[in-house]
C-alpha cells in the first residue's frame, strides 16, 4: 500500500508521544496535535489523509472537531479513539462521517489496520471524484 499521512489528536501528552513513536517504528508517516484547534491548523498547513481523534478534550471536543474537519476537509477520513465508551456519542460520531470508533486500550496492529482501511476508502473516493470530473467533460 502506498504511504499516507496520519494526524493523531490527543490532549494527553504521554499517550500522544507513545503512539507517535510506535507508529513511526512501523514506518507510518505521522504528525501530532494536542487539541482540536491545533488539529485544524495542522490540516490547513499539511497534507493529511487520516486523522485519529480523541473524543474528550478540553476546549473543542472530539465531536466538534470531527464536524469541522468533515466540513472543511470532507475527504479526510477520521477514526475516533476514546477512553470513554459511550454508545450515543459513538453513533453520533459515525453519523457525522467518522470512519470508525475505537476504544482505548487499542492493539497497535488493529489501529494500523484501521488506518490502512480508512486510507483505502479515501483513495477510492478520490478515484470516484476523478471519474465524475472526467464524465462531466
Amino acid at each position: 500500500m502506498d504511504s499516507f499521512i496520519t494526524l493523531f489528536v490527543d490532549d494527553e501528552e504521554e499517550f500522544l508521544a507513545t503512539v507517535l513513536k510506535r507508529m513511526k517504528k512501523r514506518n507510518l508517516e505521522v504528525v501530532g496535535a494536542n487539541s482540536g484547534e491545533e488539529a485544524l491548523a495542522v490540516l490547513k498547513s499539511h497534507h493529511v489523509d487520516v486523522v485519529v481523534l480523541d473524543v474528550r478534550m478540553p476546549g473543542m471536543d472530539g465531536i466538534q472537531t470531527l464536524r469541522e474537519i468533515k466540513r472543511e476537509f470532507p475527504l479526510v477520513e477520521v477514526v475516533m479513539l476514546t477512553g470513554h465508551a459511550n454508545m450515543e456519542v459513538a453513533v453520533e460520531g459515525m453519523e457525522l462521517g467518522a470512519f470508525d470508533y475505537l476504544m482505548k486500550p487499542v492493539e497497535i496492529d488493529e489501529l494500523l489496520y484501521k488506518l490502512q482501511d480508512a486510507y483505502k476508502k479515501k483513495s477510492i473516493q478520490e478515484e470516484k471524484i476523478k471519474q465524475i470530473n472526467t464524465l462531466k467533460k
Binding site: 459511550n86 454508545m87 453513533v91 476504544m103
Partner: peptide, 20 residues
C-alpha cells in the same frame, strides 16, 4: 459497568457500519 458499556458501544458501532 465499563465493560458492559464497552461491549454495547462496540456492537453498536459495528452494526451501524454494517448497515451503512
Amino acid at each position: 459497568m465499563t465493560y458492559v458499556r464497552a461491549l454495547c458501544t462496540t456492537v453498536s458501532t459495528n452494526v451501524w457500519q454494517i448497515v451503512k
